[in-house]
Design a protein around this nucleic acid. Structure first.
Length: 500
RNA sequence: GGGGCGUUAGCUCAGAGGUAGAGCAUUCGGCUUUUAACCGACUGGUCGUAGGUUCGAUCCCUACACGCCCCA
């Protein structure tokens, strides 16, 4: 056993391996017959108002277990703190209360070991609820020392690569992931309450669609064919609307073959939801209601602190069009010419935005919006009416077909959600796909592929529908005040570690 | 892809062209109500990797790796 050495072995680990060898010699070093009947937080709550005298009279015996995070030996008695999933509970060990030899053995145990104990509750002189151990057992030997007790673990790389250590040490990190779970649970309950059906659609697709992005490719050996990891579930979810489910949603991973940054991870989580007989205005209302309710339920307030600034999720969010936003942040522009390609090219040149031959006025408008408006949209705001040219799956506006009935929600200068009334005219959709195919041939590898089956589905008739996508990771970042997406992903993508 | 910063003991961090430092942890001893427990003694290093400059490099230079941040 002990010769299966890890490459980063050191003296501290060697000492613990020696202790493990001794445990093996004595019997089962990894027992699984200890059962607890209480967890820390529950005990603190239940006995919050019980003083030492009351506890003595009640004579409450409990069994607890967890990781030993503190070990203070004072001669013939010791204090220990065990950390379980709810918090920490203190033990007191006295040599003369424990069976012969147990206390001597305990002295060899290390901080980080998993320990179980049974005994009566009491309060120490300073009032801390504590278990006076009559039984104490080492349940799992920890071979690796934990980070230093005061400063903890702050090295970012180790926190991401060895998330298990981060979670052991950093309460704040545990809280981020608890809150992430609550946020997703809230989304589910919000949508379930509105009679949405949760579905799961393929991660591996023959034709990647539903977004403008570069896909990951993979290969199916038995069928000898190329497959793509999905960049969005959109087209499949709308097939389900055609199928008659009318209200569906999926919370799951998308994969995009792009750079890694504080805002981007190659795989990330999206909520996508589609609702028949609704339009993009209905979804703006629902999104507002969901975020309002979510912040209240999870944070207890609709005021969200993010990186030193406060954002109000309680008020109705402003709604302005892309062109209004461009006008607001570029006061010198001649808005009467804002759809003229020549004029837009001129502006882009001034702004140092690269213009490609195939870029029409809609694309150029969007580029100008991205460059001059996006990062200034701090308070929650819906930007509406994105150009049809850059919205191949959105329904064109009835009175102004240059734009679509689409919105994006921005908060802290970041895109949080994207929704629109769906294009359900199969012939128009086919034409939009053809246009995308031309962009692709012109060299745009983010352009959409023509999806024949999706057109066929629309030909059966998709009821008037609107949908939304919400970037779950970015929302979690906002509500947990996390500066990087890696802080809200349990195992963020990292370059492989070299073990030499 | 470009730029900036970083990489020293298990962890958190100092350091200076001339024998590598602290605190915590570990090891040993003491201590029966501690709270970063305390007291005493000891131990622990390929200074990210590879080259170069130099009498001498962990320090200066170059490249590379990994990470963090900013930009595209």
């Amino acid at each position: 056993m002990s010769n299966d050495k890890q490459p980063d072995e050191n003296k501290l680990i060697a000492e613990r391996r020696g202790k493990l060898d001794a445990l093996r010699a004595e019997g089962n070093a990894y027992p699984n017959d200890f059962r607890r009947n209480a967890v820390a937080e529950e005990l603190h709550q239940t006995f919050e108002s019980h003083d030492n005298e009351a506890l003595h009279e009640e004579s409450v015996e409990v069994s607890v277990s967890g990781r030993m995070m503190v070990k203070r030996v004072m001669g013939k008695a010791s204090f220990v703190k065990l950390q379980d999933r709810t918090g920490q509970i203190q033990l007191r060990l006295e040599r003369d209360r424990l069976p012969e030899g147990v206390y001597q053995a305990f002295k060899k145990w290390d901080v980080g070991d998993i320990v179980g104990a049974t005994g009566k509750l009491f309060r120490t002189q300073t009032g801390e609820l504590t278990v006076m151990a009559d039984v104490v057992r080492l349940l799992t030997k920890s071979l690796r020392p934990l980070p230093e007790k005061f400063h903890g673990l702050s090295d970012q790389e180790t926190r991401y690569r060895q998330r298990y250590v981060d979670l052991i040490i950093n309460e704040s990190s545990r809280n981020v992931f608890r809150m992430r779970s609550q946020i997703i649970t809230y989304m589910r309950s919000f949508l379930e309450a509105a009679d949405f059906l949760e579905v799961e659609t393929p991660m591996m697709q023959v034709t990647p669609g539903g977004a403008l992005a570069r896909p990951f490719t993979t290969h199916h050996n038995a069928l000898d064919m190329q497959l793509y990891l999905r960049i969005a579930p959109e087209l499949n979810l709308k097939r389900l609307i055609v199928g008659g489910f009318e209200r569906v949603y999926e919370i799951n991973r998308n994969f995009r073959n792009e750079g890694v940054s504080t805002q981007h991870n190659p795989e990330f989580t999206m909520l996508e939801a589609y609702r028949a007989y609704a339009d993009y205005n209905d979804w703006m209302d629902m999104t507002e209601a969901m975020l309002h309710g979510m912040t209240e339920a999870i944070l207890g307030t609709t005021r969200v602190n993010y990186q030193g600034d406060e954002y109000d999720f309680g008020q109705p969010f402003r709604r302005i069009t892309v062109e209004e936003a461009i006008a607001a942040y570029n006061p010198n522009l001649d808005m009467s010419r804002i759809r003229e390609r020549d004029y837009l090219v001129e502006i882009c040149t001034k702004l140092d935005i690269a213009v490609k031959d195939g870029d029409g006025p809609g694309k150029l408008q969007t580029d100008i919006f991205d460059a001059t408006c996006e990062d200034k949209l701090r308070e929650p705001i819906f930007i509406t009416h994105y150009p049809t040219e850059v919205s191949p799956l959105s329904r064109a506006n009835d009175t102004d077909p240059f734009v679509t009935d689409r919105f994006e929600l921005f908060i802290t200068g970041r895109e949080i959600a994207n929704g629109f009334s769906e294009l359900n005219d199969p012939e128009t959709q086919a034409a939009r796909f053809r246009a995308q195919a031309e962009y692709r041939e012109a060299g745009d590898d983010e352009a959409m592929a023509y999806d024949h089956d999706y057109i066929r589905a629309l030909e059966y008739g998709m009821p008037p529908t609107a949908g939304i996508g919400v970037g779950v990771d970015r929302l979690v970042m906002l509500l947990t005040d996390s500066p990087s997406i890696r802080d809200v992903l349990l195992f963020p993508h990292m370059r492989p570690e070299v073990f030499d």
